[in-house]
Nucleic acid binder design. Structure first.
Lengths: 207, 207
DNA sequence: CCTCCAATGTTGCCAACGTCAACATCAGAG
DNA sequence: CTCTGATGTTGACGTTGGCAACATTGGAGG
């Protein structure tokens, strides 16, 4: 927004891009959303950003590193959505269900992105520490909410992390089944979510 | 290398293989297990079976078709394991938990295979009808068990399919989280499964 | 203002891959 | 024994990820 005013600006695209890393990431995300993970090719990304095919390697070690960055961004967004749902919902019982819905909505609205985060596209062993941290952060949002509910004696006093994992597995399961087309009938995901939360509460609420 | 068919390696490797389709499938499965889905190349499969790279195309339309066949086989095996656990466990309350354990064990023991079944490697739309049928069959094992428990008034009388989907989502969630390395600590999967079933029962048991 | 350098972007090139087309071989029906 | 459809092979092509060598640039130090 504040370019230096020296000299005549050239209509020609400059050699250096400015913020190529960001642009590549955005384009990768858009491509994944539009054509799926398989549709992502480094050459196409470069072309669409208006840069040569290998420019990407100045910002990402390889294709997997790009996908890892995409996954990191996904976990960041997810955490943000979860926290927003929890806080906007009043940090209470209903807000907890809101979080669950937000989680599944994120997955269903961004299936390919979600798959990059969980589908084993990133190195299973020797995981990127930043990715691990960001994933942990999203999970922590769930743990925090549960801890608050436990404090208010709304939920059982079991090990918080264990309870959180239980809830996480449930919403993650619903989300992935929905994404993979195992729940085809329209409204099936919503119906399942409603039932799941009803039964979940019976299972983990303080009696 | 002699392209001649008189190699002494096996009893006669004639021009025609005999049951190439089966052999290709088995080799594909072994490769996937050993090197992951990404490590699967048609050329390597052919070479390892002792056949040329394109022989595969007489038995599978393309790579996706091969993966679909792998997924079909996976669902068949999974259903079998589930049914076995249910029946061997006495078709009762404990047997139901056995089924859940068998499910997660299958996934954790065959992570790559499980990913082929659920990871979006097969066509999301226009799914192979045989694949859909086989997946439905595995799910049906769960539905049947639940229905039996409902008949014996062990479980709530809710819509059986809905309940089954709930349970499915839960075990599927635990399984995929475990596979993707989100539950790293040794024993975390087992601990979660134990807790999950305890809470699940509280949620869906007949009061 | 000039010079030089490290960061950034480009072109040439390669091996591996999936897949098609044309050809080779075989098993079994007639 | 012959013919034919099924099965397997060879050659080739376009695409992809990635390396190496080269080009361009903004900016720091003189």
């Amino acid at each position: 927004m504040t370019p230096s005013t020296r000299g005549a600006r050239k209509p020609r695209r400059p050699y250096h891009h400015g913020n190529l890393r960001r642009a590549l990431l955005d384009e990768a995300l858009a491509t994944i959303r539009a054509e799926g993970v398989d549709g992502l090719t480094l050459r196409a990304i470069g072309a669409r950003v208006g840069v040569s095919r290998t420019a990407l390697y100045r910002h990402f070690a390889d294709k997997r590193a790009l996908l890892t960055a995409v996954a990191i961004e996904g976990f960041r967004t997810l955490r943000q959505q979860l926290v927003t749902a929890w806080e906007a919902g009043g940090r209470g019982d209903a807000a907890f269900q809101s979080m669950g819905l937000a989680y599944v909505r994120f997955a269903v609205a961004n299936p390919s992105h979600y798959r990059v985060m969980f589908g084993g596209f990133v190195d299973p062993k020797a995981r990127d520490p930043e990715l691990a941290a960001e994933a942990e952060g999203a999970f922590q949002a769930l743990v925090d909410a549960l801890a608050a509910l436990q404090r208010d004696a709304v939920m059982r006093g079991d090990d918080t992390v264990l309870m959180a994992r239980y809830v996480w597995a449930l919403v993650h399961g619903v989300a992935t089944l929905g994404i993979d087309g195992q729940l085809r009938e329209p409204g099936a995901v919503e119906e399942l979510m409603r039932y799941a939360f009803e039964r979940l509460r019976t299972g983990i609420a303080a009696n």
